[in-house]
């Protein structure tokens, strides 16, 4: 790489990464600002934890957070079960009737605008209620179903990529030794793809925890999730307690992602190390 281009690349990286991170840092700093005007720094009384204290006394916010947590957990679990099955179907059964359609159905929810997905699911729920009497009204159940439908696609991508790297001769060996397909899956395949399933679960949880648009379409008057509450507040402008909330969320997510990254890096190193040891022993 010549020097001028190296400079250009470094410059772009500096601009790009500050672009990605400065807003987040600004939000964190302002969360300790005592002034209600958020962006006007009140140096006499800052830094303060007042907004954090207020968060934990805000009943509506805590209720919304609890509901979002429940929905996200149920969603992640459902999405992982269905997503793993779908990934298995797409990766291992190369031919079956309707495979092309299935493939399209599993990727489309990722790229379609959320307004369309939300609108279509609401119309489905209304039609179902009219014809079958289920679901009665809309709330946590309909939100969870909607979230599973779109977050499943992300689980499929992650699990499918891992399944493609699994050495099939191990599965075949187990099969030759008389293990039934279900047992092969539980004892051989599942442990090999466990970390992909775990990442899929976390991603599905975050997608659900964060979703506003689809949720707004399929939620009822009695169910307000955290993003809905935040959005209705933020529409009126910046607010100091939202800065505090954002800071807490960013810290939790960063801790999770960084520890997951370190864990995966170590697992990778261990695998390389084990492979080397096995090679040396056999040599």
């Amino acid at each position: 790489m010549n020097e001028r281009r190296a400079g250009l690349v470094l410059g772009a990286m500096a601009v790009g990464f500050s672009f990605l991170y400065l807003p987040i840092f600004a939000m964190i700093i302002y969360s300790f600002n005592a002034s209600r005007l958020v962006t006007v720094w009140d140096s006499a009384n800052s830094p303060t934890l007042a907004w954090y204290r207020e968060l934990f006394h805000n009943g509506a916010l805590l209720d919304a957070a609890r509901l979002s947590f429940k929905i996200a957990t149920a969603n992640a679990t459902g999405a992982v079960i269905l997503g793993t099955l779908a990934a298995f179907a797409l990766e291992r059964y190369r031919r079956f009737r309707g495979r092309a359609m299935f493939n399209l159905l599993t990727t489309a929810p990722m790229v379609l605008p959320e307004v369309i997905t939300g609108l279509s699911l609401l119309l489905l729920f209304v039609a179902l209620e009219q014809t079958m009497g289920w679901p009665r009204g809309r709330g946590a159940v309909t939100i969870t179903i909607a979230h599973i439908t779109f977050s499943m696609a992300y689980v499929i991508v992650i699990v499918k990529a891992r399944l493609a790297t699994v050495d099939r001769s191990i599965e075949e060996a187990a099969m030759d030794l008389g293990a039934r397909p279900w047992k092969v899956f539980a004892v051989i395949t599942l442990p090999l793809i466990a970390s992909a399933i775990a990442s899929g679960w976390v991603l599905a949880f975050i997608l659900s925890w964060d979703d506003l648009v689809i949720t707004s379409f399929v939620s009822g008057p009695s169910s307000t999730t955290l993003p809905q509450l935040v959005f209705s507040k933020v529409r009126l402008g910046v607010s100091p307690d939202i800065n505090a909330l954002a800071t807490l969320l960013v810290l939790v997510v960063t801790a999770c992602v960084v520890s997951a990254g370190i864990y995966m890096l170590q697992a990778e190193r261990k695998r390389l190390h084990d492979a080397q040891m096995a090679f040396e022993e056999s040599a």
Binding site: L20, P23, I24, A26, M27, V234, A246, L249, V250
Partner: peptide, 16 residues
């Protein structure tokens, strides 16, 4: 990392 932190809150950050 930013992809994992709330989309809504990241857009909100620019409001300030």
């Amino acid at each position: 990392l930013p992809f994992f932190t709330s989309f809504l809150l990241r857009v909100y950050a620019w409001l300030g």
